[in-house]
Amino acid sequence: MTRKWRPSLWLVLGGALAGTLALSLAGIVALRYLGPEIGFRHAAVLLAAIIGLLTAVLWLMLLRVLLRPVTALAAYAAAMRAPGRETVAPPDHFGTRELHDMGLSVIDMAATLSNRETTVRSFTNHVTHELRTPISTLRAATELLEDSAELSPADRHLVAQIRGAGQQLDRQMEALRQVAAAREADYRGRTRLSAAIEGLAPRHPGLRIVAGSEDAMLPLAREGAEIVFSHLFGNAAGHGAKTVSIDARQEADLLVLTVRDDGRGVSSGNRERIFEPFFTTRRDSGGTGMGLHIVASLLRAHGGRISLEPAADGSGAAFRIEFPQA
């Protein structure tokens, strides 16, 4: 970007205020001398037109120097976070020196975040692509070995372990794809709590879902809310829960959801790690350790956050979800 002189913000605002004050004082003085010459009514109309014109000039200056750069920067940020975006050109006008510095910082931050997102997506695509062929080979080899009549019981046990390892790799790849999707997908919108959970009961037939404040409006599109609740319900069912309750309430400028189950809960030694990727206590039963990480990533990408509320061991788990309210 070419370097050029930009006024400072204090100069623009101070000049606008000084100009407004000067116009008012000049109008009073001019009216005093013009009134006796051309009549006070004509003088007042003439001065009002002149002052209005000069005020419009000041307004256009502020519009160009302050409002237009802020609007352009907001539009750039919105375009950068839009799903399926292509190359987005940064604003070419920043107005004051302070807005110029802020604009460059926002553009640099957006580029850094975009590069990180691209790195995560490229890494995920690379890993899943590179592992797809070895996993398919493992699956085919284990199927051939299992059909052999010459295997001893020990060999069959080893083949079963190999098959299980292949299935675990397949689940981990799918979890990686879900994490990438949770970070990139745009689920902005609003949906009622009742609508978000109404289609989830058939997916979790062993759970009784109790929702309070069903009319609460969640600042997430229905698809995003279903992903969040589905993972939480699946996590609860995997830890022996029979009932899950959801409570929604307003706390100051936050919409707070509490998702509580009556399962085995989370031990004190695992409480600090449950949102870490690949951490699971159910590896033997097919757990990937990515469900809660996916939930946290999706909520974080949409301005929310999730945390585990304090609870005694064995009394079930309670998750607190917060959404800032404008």
Rank of each mutant, 00 (worst) to 15 (best):
P202K: 15
P202T: 15
H204I: 01
H204V: 03
P205K: 15
G206C: 04
L207W: 12
L207G: 10
A211V: 13
G212L: 08
S213G: 08
E214M: 09
D215L: 02
M217K: 12
M217W: 11
L218S: 00
P219K: 03
E223Q: 09
E223R: 10
E223D: 08
A225V: 04
A225Y: 05
A225F: 04
E226H: 08
I227R: 11
I227T: 06
V228D: 00
N235A: 03
N235F: 04
A236P: 03
A236Y: 03
A237H: 10
A237V: 10
H239V: 02
H239S: 00
H239Y: 04
H239W: 00
G240S: 08
G240K: 07
G240T: 11
G240M: 08
A241K: 12
A241D: 12
A241G: 11
T243S: 07
V244H: 03
V244K: 04
S245G: 11
I246Y: 02
I246Q: 03
I246R: 04
I246P: 01
I246H: 00
D247K: 13
D247L: 15
A248D: 02
R249L: 04
R249W: 01
R249P: 00
R249D: 04
R249H: 06
Q250Y: 07
A252D: 14
A252I: 14
L254W: 13
L255H: 00
V256I: 14
T258K: 12
T258R: 14
D261S: 06
D261W: 07
D261L: 06
G263M: 07
G265K: 00
G265R: 00
V266W: 12
V266Y: 10
V266M: 13
V266E: 10
V266A: 13
S267N: 15
S267Q: 15
S268Y: 15
